[in-house]
Each structure stands twice: as C-alpha cells, then as structure tokens.
Amino acid sequence: MSDREALRLDFLKTAGLADAARTPLPGDASTRRYERLITSSGQTLMLMDQAPAAESPPADPSWSPERRHAEGWNAIARLSAGKIEAFAAVAAHLRSLGLSAPEVVALDAPNGLAVLEDFGDALFARVIEDGEPEAPLYLAATEALALLHDAPTPEVLTGPGGDWPLLTYDATALQGGADLFVQWMPKLVPALRFDDAAIADWHAAWAPIVAAGEAGATVMAHRDYHAENLILLPGLQGPRSVGMIDFQDAVRAHPSWDLHSLLQDARRDVSPALEALALDHYFTLRPDVDREPFLQAYAGLAALNEARILGIFARLIARDGKPRYRAFMPRMWAHLETNLGKPGLESVRDWFARYVPEDVRQ
C-alpha cells in the first residue's frame, strides 16, 4: 500500500466513510484524482485527492512579477496549485450567493483531501449529446454568471480550510498565458520561428488588451466555465440548476472572461446564434453594463485566451504525449480568427499575418 493510499484510508475512516465503496473516475489534464464513494445507505459522495507536493507553489499576494516568474507557472498565472482550501473557500462563497457548488462534507487541507457532495454525471456537454435542448442550459449558466457578477467581490474568501485570497487576473497572469503560444507552438510546428523581434512585437500587440483586462477585473471569475465543468441539477430552476465544479483557480477578472469561456468553448461547438442569444440575455440581466466596450473586451480577452489554450494544447501534445488535444485545435483557431476581425485587435491580427502562415492556423 502506498503512503498516499494510507492517508486516504485514514481520512475516510475519520470522516466515518471507511466502509464506503470506492470507484475511481477518469482523470483529466490536472494533477487531481477523484473517486465516487457509495455509503452503506446508498448515498454517493466524491473524494477529491490533490497531493500537496504535486505542483509548484501558488502566488503569494505580496510577490512581485519577477518573484512570480522565479517561482513557476502557478505563481505567474495565479493558479491555486490545486490547494484544497482554495476549492473549499470558493465553494463557500458561491453557496453563500445561492449558487450551486458542492458542499464540503469533510476536509483535510494539509494532506489535500476532501469529501464533497456528489452532483452526479449530468455534465452539460453530455446531456446535450443525449438530446437535452442546449439553449436553456446556456441561458441558465449565463444567469448564474450575472448573479455572481452583481454580488460584491471580496478580496479574501473564507471557507472550512481557512482564508484564501481572491487575486486579480492581472497583467503578469494574462500576458503569461498568451506567451504559452509563442513558447510552445514552435515545438509542435517546427516551421514556426519567433525571434526576439517577433516576441517584442507579440507583447506590444497584446499590451492594450492585457491592460484593459487588468483594469476591468471587478468580479469573481470561475476561470474554467464551460460545458464540461457545469452539471445539470435535477429539480432546480434557473441559476441554481447549474452545478459548478473545478473552480479552485477562481480570480478577480473582467466579467467577460467566464462568458467567452462558456460561449467560445474549446471542446464543443456553440453556434454564433446561441452565443448572441446568451450575450443578449446577459445584457438584459445587467442593464447597467455598457455593451460596446464590454464586447470589445470580450473579443480581446477571448482571443488572448484562445492563444493561451492553443499554447497549452501544443504543450500537452509536444511535451506530454497527449495527441488527443490536437482534435480541439481547429475549433480554437476558428474562434481566434473570428475575434481577430473585431475592433481593437488590429495589432494582434497584423502579428499573426506576419509570423504565422495561414496553413498553420487550422
């Protein structure tokens, strides 16, 4: 028996779940693992297992950009480094607003273990594949964001594992994400070459979008808000029917961030008509939002996110030997191309025209 398994068994015993049946769930691109627990009474729960030493440290709020770059990717991007206490604190905040996040049933934050309420397997992406109408799901998800965005955004979140800072998705994090494209795409496509001049042009092209993203960071962003991380909860209506998971990397960000994650999804097609319907619904729910500058920020930050995701996919394929992510790249290129045609992205569009041949962008 591994030391980690011994920790899991001790934790489950302390939580009164020593006799629960355990079924491992398929993994994703993260370092977390999950098991479904079935108790003797038939109740189902989820075991979240995130080994604390598996990742580089999260950013301390006091760290300078230089210190963050020295500490590693989690600090640059202001990711939670898989800290269970981050998940617990974000969940507590979402639940306090009447939104649906799993209840934390038991927690061992120092050892990276938690037992959570089980929301089931009705991921938006799966139930849509099975015939569920997609528009009501996307409108409910949009309503949940509007509710979240209208709520006060605290600087520190409090949960059962202690306090957790809600850091800003700032210029260092935004530019660091965009830079994954120029760092990793040449490793996937050797014909691409980005010299120092190209990199300098890259930073200059993104600078106004990065600055606007930091300046507009006013709401909590789930940060990975899409159809694979949202679960349809039966018997509930409106925003409460949207079960949220995988939100431990939440930050203070521009309110468009989660919207473009939802509506310009890397893993499934969302029609332009449904995207427009959901955006109209958002503006109806938040009538004080100035639509034109919001949509300009939406396009700019969506383009940046798509460059970031293309860089991540290139890394997963080239470094980690996960070729399945290649299938998602054409969709990301298509979203990026659409956004590059929007006002405010002329400099970024010109950069791609100079440095990335069209036959690569597919």
Results as ranks from 00 to 15, higher is better:
A122Y: 01
S100F: 09
S40G: 14
L137R: 13
K322W: 02
R36P: 09
R268M: 14
R223T: 13
A266L: 03
E103H: 11
D320H: 04
P52R: 12
H222S: 09
E129D: 15
V189L: 08
A302P: 04
L263P: 06
G213V: 15
G176C: 10
L99R: 03
A215T: 11
G341E: 11
R193Y: 13
G177C: 11
P343C: 05
T14C: 00
P287H: 02
L345I: 06
F328K: 00
E358C: 00
E85R: 13
W202K: 08
L97Y: 01
A307F: 06
L279A: 01
L139M: 13
D130W: 09
H226I: 04
V115S: 10
R67G: 01
G120F: 08
L12V: 10
T153Y: 12
E5K: 05
L174Q: 15
A144C: 08
R319C: 01
D195L: 07
N305P: 00
P343W: 02
R36M: 01
E306P: 03
G16C: 10
A353S: 13
A178E: 08
P160G: 08
A70N: 02
K83I: 04
V127E: 03
E132L: 09
L157V: 12
H93N: 07
L301Y: 04
A92T: 12
V115A: 02
V210N: 05
A146E: 12
H281D: 11
D288F: 05
P65D: 09
L47C: 11
L45R: 09
A221T: 02
T172S: 13
A20M: 01
Y298S: 06
